[in-house]
């Protein structure tokens, strides 16, 4: 157990040392969440000023959606980009011939993702409070459950992305940035699932984020916590995490069969 923890820490240390030496990388973590929050904050302010009734709630729903969705986005990118860092530095060969188990690699990437997410999203959350008087923490302790579910969704999506990178090499690295953006319209971030065309609703309901955002809107609109939505989101995350873990294990084995672990960045 101690050796496992040390190996996980070893890989985390490698990434933390990288951030310590590169302030542009640190700045980049907070750049997009803060920019997104500023743009949507101004949009929310405009909407609130045009709506005589319910404007503040609508603005809060928009800003809450932006900030919570950033948790999923940054969690997903945190895992995928940390893995890509190993490819870009041509270090994977060394990592995979060390006693580091694949599950320990995933644990280290997830831990790094949580750190990256906190460093990236917290400044935006605090700025939203300062600039737009929107306090995300006013959602109460349930915010923690929303955040955990969104992080978990980011992680299983990124495991699927890493699997695709193992399968298709660096050519699939664009997925690291784009895949969750593609899911945004179906994740009910800014509007309820009922707004979507009927044919797309089953897909939306299969995504944990839709249940989280329905729950968030319920809290902001009525103050009621919809525990059933949280339970469904958690179960969906568990199911998707199992699928993504199987996909990762399968593609890792295929990469070992094809000899892709040494040539993956080429």
């Amino acid at each position: 157990m101690r050796a496992t923890a040390r190996r996980v820490w070893g890989l985390m240390y490698r990434h933390l040392a990288l951030y310590r030496r590169s302030w542009p990388r640190l700045l980049e973590l907070a750049y997009w969440p803060t920019l997104q929050m500023c743009i949507w904050g101004l949009t929310s302010t405009y909407i609130a000023s045009r709506l005589p009734v319910g404007g503040q709630v609508a603005a809060g729903v928009l800003l809450g959606g932006v900030l919570l969705w950033e948790i999923a986005l940054r969690s997903q990118m945190g895992v995928a980009i940390s893995f890509l860092e190993e490819i870009w530095s041509r270090n994977l060969g060394h990592v995979f011939v060390s006693p580091l188990r694949p599950r320990e690699l995933v644990a280290a990437l997830i831990a790094m993702s949580a750190i990256r997410m906190a460093v990236g999203v917290l400044p935006a959350v605090l700025l939203a409070w300062v600039l737009y008087a929107f306090n995300l923490f006013a959602l109460g302790p349930v915010l923690i459950l929303f955040a955990i579910n969104l992080m978990a969704m980011g992680w299983w999506v990124s495991l699927a992305v890493v699997s695709m990178i193992l399968r298709h090499g660096a050519g699939a690295e664009a997925l690291a940035w784009s895949v969750l953006f593609a899911l945004t319209p179906l994740s009910a971030v800014f509007y309820p699932v009922s707004v979507l065309p009927v044919a797309l609703r089953p897909i939306a309901w299969a995504l944990p984020a839709s249940h989280v955002f329905e729950g968030m809107r319920a809290v902001l609109n009525t103050g009621v916590i919809q525990w059933d939505q949280l339970a469904i989101a958690s179960l969906l995350n568990l199911a998707w995490l199992l699928v993504a873990s199987w996909l990762f294990a399968w593609q890792f084995r295929v990469a070992r069969e094809r000899g892709a672990l040494l040539s993956i960045g080429e």
């Binding site: 070893g10 240390y13 490698r14 030496r21 530095s89 994977l92 580091l100």
Partner: peptide, 24 residues
């Protein structure tokens, strides 16, 4: 192997420390 690199931005000591952890 000369065909597998160590992370370029990390110092030599940081790189060696990473592998101290990975090999316990």
């Amino acid at each position: 192997s000369p065909y597998v690199a160590l992370p370029h931005r990390l110092s030599v000591e940081e790189n060696l420390r990473v592998y101290c952890h990975l090999y316990d």
